[in-house]
């Protein structure tokens, strides 16, 4: 069984984790066109290379980001999502930052 390094809990069996899909940037739901929205909702890039994914350590409910090469299945780096998501997100202004 594969081992994944949880940034909070250290190396653990992969069975302790829940996969959360690729990290996408959401287009502005108020302004983007239907095809862009559909692409965001239904499509994964599915290219061979390094992918950035959401993973949760199930027993501690801790979400983090993993960078994984989907060809070799090597997990290259795991880190707290605070690295990517630094600021509060607001939806108040239509057309604003999502």
């Amino acid at each position: 069984m594969k081992i994944m390094h949880c940034p909070l809990n250290g190396p653990r069996n992969i069975s302790e984790f829940t996969y959360g899909g690729q990290v996408h940037t959401m287009p502005d739901p108020k302004t983007c066109d239907d095809p862009s929205w559909a692409r965001y909702v239904f499509y994964e890039d599915n290219d061979i290379g390094i992918v950035r994914e959401w993973w949760q350590h199930t027993p501690s409910s801790y979400w983090f980001i993993a960078e994984r090469h989907n060809g070799s299945d090597d997990i290259l780096r795991t880190y707290d999502p605070g690295e990517l998501f630094t600021d509060r997100v607001d939806f108040q202004t239509p057309g604003g930052e999502s």
Partner: peptide, 11 residues
């Protein structure tokens, strides 16, 4: 350790 024991979460 926050982990699993007999398929359930455990601390």
């Amino acid at each position: 350790a926050q982990t699993q024991m007999a398929h359930v979460s455990v601390v």
